[in-house]
């Protein structure tokens, strides 16, 4: 589904990704771990097509298609979803209205019928239950006045509504207390399916206790330096990132 080859990317003139390779197949859950500054968020933003991030080499194939030159909205309509590390507040714009516009843009793109207000509401209500979010919150302006936990929950709610094919979760666990983490994780788990792939980007092993990955990759200085099964995460937790970096250097 996702095949990244020798990816190089720059942010504000500084090279962050320096030859990253990664392959994700449908149904798989991959965790990408790494210390601060290793390029984790850059990877997430590059996949989503953020224009401040300049791809200087390599390629990203998504379902066999090169993503280069595709706008963020085109990628989103093709089924790529990014759960933001810092969800953005948009004053005055109702979350539900926003989601309905997004959902219908995606349906239109797929050549499917758009949902009218009533159908959408019914559909969205079912998804709300997944993340134990109440309707009042869902109707408020996007992320405005939301707590950290509510913002992250809202990201997963949006993910559930938009039904993407590839979910990229950028540090979704950061800033969450244990209860919120559990709710968010169970929402994510409910969305696991054989057609859908997930990329969990995280600094801590904690999230992986709740969302068990099929593969774990360690990112260091813009490259994947080690890959393994879920046990790699535990090893990392035990020995720290310094261990990997020494290892990589060796």
């Amino acid at each position: 589904m996702l095949k990244i080859t020798n990816l190089h990317a720059k942010v504000e003139g500084r090279e962050i990704l320096k030859g990253l390779d990664l392959e994700v197949r449908p149904g798989e859950v991959h965790a990408v771990m790494g210390p601060n500054g290793s390029g984790k968020s850059t990877l997430a933003n590059v996949i989503a097509g953020r224009e401040d991030y300049e791809v200087t080499g390599g390629e990203i194939l998504y379902r066999g298609e090169n993503l280069a030159g595709l706008s963020p909205e085109d990628r989103a309509r093709d089924g790529i979803f990014l759960a933001f590390q810092y969800p953005v507040e948009i004053p005055g714009v109702s979350n539900m209205y926003f989601l309905k516009a997004a959902k219908n843009a995606i349906l239109r793109h797929r050549g499917e019928d758009e949902l009218d207000a009533v159908d959408f509401l019914e559909f969205a209500r079912r998804k709300l239950k997944l993340v134990e979010m109440n309707e009042e919150l869902a109707n408020r302006p996007i992320n405005e006045g939301f707590s950290g936990g509510e913002k992250k929950r809202n990201e997963i709610f949006q993910m559930a509504v938009l039904e993407p094919t590839l979910c990229v979760l950028d540090e979704t666990d950061s800033g969450l207390d244990i209860d919120a983490l559990r709710v968010v994780a169970s929402g994510v788990n409910a969305l696991r399916s054989p057609e859908r792939a997930m990329l969990l980007i995280t600094h801590y092993q904690r999230l992986l206790e709740y969302i068990v990955p099929d593969f774990v990759h360690v990112l260091s200085d813009g490259r994947i330096v080690r890959s393994g099964g879920k046990e790699l995460a535990l090893e990392l937790e035990e020995k720290g990132y310094a261990w990997i970096e020494e290892h990589a250097a060796a």
Binding site: A76, F84, I90, F98, A101, I106
Partner: peptide, 30 residues
């Protein structure tokens, strides 16, 4: 108008123009 807001909307599949409209509309809502 925030670059972050625009990118957030576009990542959800909304076109840039619609995103600007939406943000402007939200700004004027009161």
């Amino acid at each position: 108008i925030g670059e972050d807001q625009l990118f957030y909307c576009r990542q959800r599949g909304i076109s840039e123009e619609d995103a600007i409209s939406m943000i402007v509309n939200g700004f004027c809502k009161e």
